[in-house]
Amino acid sequence: MRNFFVLAFVALTALALPSVAMAQSAATSAASDGNTSGVITVIQVDSETNLVGFVLSTQNGELVEVSVNDSTSFGLENAAGDRWVSDFGEDPTEALLRITDQRERFAPVTVTVADGVASAVVDREQGDLERNLGFLFAIYIVTWAGFFAYIFIVSRRQSDLAREIKALTSQVG
């Protein structure tokens, strides 16, 4: 019984790998609506050096111009891993600093655009389909490893106890 569980676990894990690969090939055509990803090339500021917009260079080499307003939300991590989440209206200076930092590092961002105005600016990493497959695999493996470890422990305890019951019953006789 115990060997069966180990075998089943290995088999399921092996099964997961091609499945994930196949799922990946099916996904490349899925584009996201209203979301544009790319590297920031130009930052536009007004006369009082307030951020008004920026230009994105997308993967296909297109240049997309977006502007920001007070309700644009930002979710950006700097090189130190410090994540800043806020609306543009809350702290325009910090937004400009973050966008500049993003441009200097050539760190790609994903922007949700509606009518040329960005409603959200976040790290591109979040939307990276290929990277996420690692996370998906982790979810899958954790779920199964959890079950099999538990069932393995339970079934081992069961067979131990079954042996003990046998021994004890013969003693009581």
């Binding site: 994930v20 196949m22 799922a23 609506d33 998906l136």
Partner: peptide, 24 residues
């Protein structure tokens, strides 16, 4: 497993990671 990884189409917003839904 077959349905989750091979049959159901990829979700448009989140991509493949949305398949976590079927475990979570």
């Amino acid at each position: 497993l077959w349905m989750v990884f091979l049959w159901v189409p990829t979700e448009i917003n989140q991509g493949n990671i949305q398949r976590a839904l079927y475990f979570h």
